[in-house]
Computed example of a mutant assay.
Amino acid sequence: MPVPVFFLALAVFAMGTSEFMLAGLVPEIADALGVSLAQAGLLTSAFAVGLVVGAPLMAAVARSWRRRTALLCFLAVFVVTHVVGGLTGSFAVLLVTRLLAAVAYAGFLAVALTAAAELVPPERTGRALAVLLGGTTIACVVGIPGGALLSAAFGWRAAFWAVALLCMPAVARIPDPPVTAKPSGLRKELAELRRPRLAGTLLLGALVNAATFGVFTYLAPLAAGLAPVPLVLALFGVGCFAGVTAAGRLADRWPGRVVAFGGLLLLAGWVVLALVPAVLPLLAFPQGALSFAVGGTVITRILRLATGAPTMAGSYATAALNVGAAAGPVLGAMVAPVWAAVALVAVALVLAVGLRLRWRWC
């Protein structure tokens, strides 16, 4: 695996850590800046909005740039927003920096997905994306506890400084892969979204990710009284890393089997957990692994289907996943997190069967 792919993963890890760490910092920020907890919670909402909007918007803006130029610009904006956020005493300024940081993160991830695929032969795309997405899964593990520990020891601003510093090593090894396909017009690339099999696969990714983050968001209250909450969070996060790593090899050869069998096992796990909540400590690891194994495989498939959109393909995958990550917690709050996951994965499996029968994408 090319070394630059690992440095891209390091940058994604740092950026993902910023996304998750805020969950443990909201009370301290509210107290320090003199705002209510509800107002401080808007920092999380701003980041979510930036992630959904940022991927296609930034990919469109940077589509004519060299990969390295785009990645460095997004990374620089992300670092600057964290420096400003770590210095400001204004909640309004901090809110704006969170929105801009999310836009930069989404733009970076969209371009990084495409760049990672271009750095390896087509038959190794799944492995390259597994390394890249591994950065996100590790961030799931360390983001919340890491931010809380830094805040307790040095104040909440230290978490922002730490994220900015984590990004710096990646600057020296940002790749500049050769573009394997000549970009077409933006309108033509956007027209790819009207292709049923690409649109269906994007929806499939959004559904699986909605189930994953719908449960992950509420893992702490779900685990209360069953096992130490940090342990359950860690088991789920480590499972995510294991799943996306394993799928990196399997997705290149048997994507349909991963989605079909992995999806069925994932659905069975959510059903068992919904009926017997006490088994959460036992199912945290396998459910995390299956969620990211299936989700990572779908991302690989999106990039392979969107060959007609060489500069926008990564943004389509990123936007789909972020739509799911934003919608999942909302659905979980409206119904019940685990039952919502059951419904979402069930719909995803029905959709996957339709894709398999009609287009043989497996």
Score class of each variant (00 low, 15 high):
residue 56 P to Q: 10
residue 42 L to P: 04
residue 48 A to C: 10
residue 50 G to D: 07
residue 64 S to P: 01
residue 36 S to E: 03
residue 54 G to A: 11
residue 39 Q to W: 10
residue 48 A to G: 10
residue 36 S to Q: 06
residue 59 A to G: 10
residue 45 S to N: 05
residue 31 D to M: 13
residue 37 L to E: 09
residue 30 A to I: 01
residue 38 A to E: 13
residue 49 V to W: 09
residue 57 L to R: 08
residue 50 G to Q: 06
residue 33 L to G: 02
residue 67 R to A: 15
residue 30 A to D: 06
residue 29 I to D: 11
residue 65 W to N: 02
residue 57 L to E: 10
residue 37 L to D: 03
residue 36 S to M: 05
residue 57 L to M: 10
residue 59 A to E: 09
residue 66 R to P: 07
residue 61 V to Q: 09
residue 32 A to R: 04
residue 67 R to D: 12
residue 39 Q to Y: 05
residue 65 W to C: 01
residue 61 V to D: 12
residue 52 V to H: 01
residue 54 G to C: 08
residue 30 A to R: 05
residue 51 L to Q: 02
residue 65 W to D: 03
residue 31 D to P: 03
residue 41 G to C: 01
residue 43 L to H: 10
residue 60 A to C: 08
residue 41 G to Q: 07
residue 59 A to S: 13
residue 39 Q to K: 08
residue 60 A to W: 15
residue 57 L to A: 15
residue 36 S to D: 06
residue 37 L to W: 00
residue 57 L to W: 09
residue 54 G to T: 04
residue 37 L to P: 01
residue 49 V to I: 15
residue 46 A to Y: 03
residue 39 Q to P: 11
residue 67 R to L: 13
residue 51 L to H: 00
residue 47 F to I: 06
residue 47 F to M: 11
residue 39 Q to R: 14
residue 38 A to Q: 14
residue 59 A to T: 14
residue 28 E to H: 12
residue 42 L to Q: 15
residue 40 A to M: 02
residue 62 A to V: 06
residue 50 G to E: 08
residue 54 G to N: 07
residue 38 A to C: 11
residue 63 R to P: 01
residue 55 A to N: 04
residue 51 L to G: 00
residue 56 P to Y: 07
residue 37 L to K: 00
residue 34 G to C: 03
residue 31 D to A: 13
residue 58 M to Q: 09
residue 59 A to N: 08
residue 30 A to M: 05
residue 48 A to P: 10
residue 43 L to P: 02
residue 29 I to A: 12
residue 49 V to L: 15
residue 37 L to G: 05
residue 28 E to W: 12
residue 31 D to Q: 13
residue 34 G to R: 02
residue 67 R to I: 15
residue 43 L to T: 08
